[in-house]
Amino acid sequence: MLELTLQALFSGLLAGGYYATVAVGLALVFGTMRVINLAHGELVLLAAYVAYAAETNYGINPVMAIPVALVIVGAASALVYALLSRIHQDREINSLILTFGLGIILTNAILSIWAADIHSTSNAWFQDSVVVADTLFAMNAEVASFVGGLVLMAGVWWWLNHSWQGRAVRALSSNRAAATLMGVNPRKIEILSFLIAALLATFAGFAIYTGKTVFPALGHVLTVKAFIITVLAGMGSIPGVLIGAVMIGVIESLTVTYLSASLQELAGMILFLVVLFVSPSGLFGGGRALAR
């Protein structure tokens, strides 16, 4: 019983790591543009499929496919930005629907190129298991992605706090007009936030492809999950998003362990609604700017 619980907690923690990389990208873009990019999960999925295509067609290790995926996802993300920035009328509703439409395009493009089959890496190393502390099992890929994700997020966190451009991102998030008056070029910073989001999405796509399975409908699921996490964390800070992501990961894996796999999504959804209704600014206060 205890062992089962510990294992569930451990698996949930690892899953939370990659959920967080997805969610931080969503939150960054929301910070600078006040727009929820509903195609964000599809960008993650695109990266995963690039890794898949590289591995099956050219026999390239998924790690080596990351740069290629980065270019493709970065271009796609920049395109999302270019289209979004053309919306001026009824911005809130129209940008939601635009990114929703872009998500449909990406999902169906992936569906028509790679069919609806479920894929995961054929590289044996990623799927070998490691044993942590004698009792806890995980795949190499899960541990590697978790550590890699933490390093990446720490890097973004440092960048947000210590670089000029990172500060500009935060300034734009907290007060657009004032930031612009202080010499921040909003368009430059907005596109930068989309590119950082693409970087995180690429990594998350790699993590899913090596540690989990990918299929076309997953993009939408990831977007929703990332949104739920940012709601839990209140769009506040990277550490907050990480905690929210681990919470979702743990709750899901406990649900799968003790109830049923079909209820996995339900747990997250209910938690999401409860937090929305009880404390709409998130569990960790009403912070708006990222990284604090």
Binding site: I87, I97, G101, G103, I104, N108, L111, A116
Partner: peptide, 17 residues
Amino acid sequence: PHGHQMVLGVLLCAMIL
């Protein structure tokens, strides 16, 4: 036959833009 809903997405985006 696969992914024909892509057209819906294109229409949706084109209309919004």
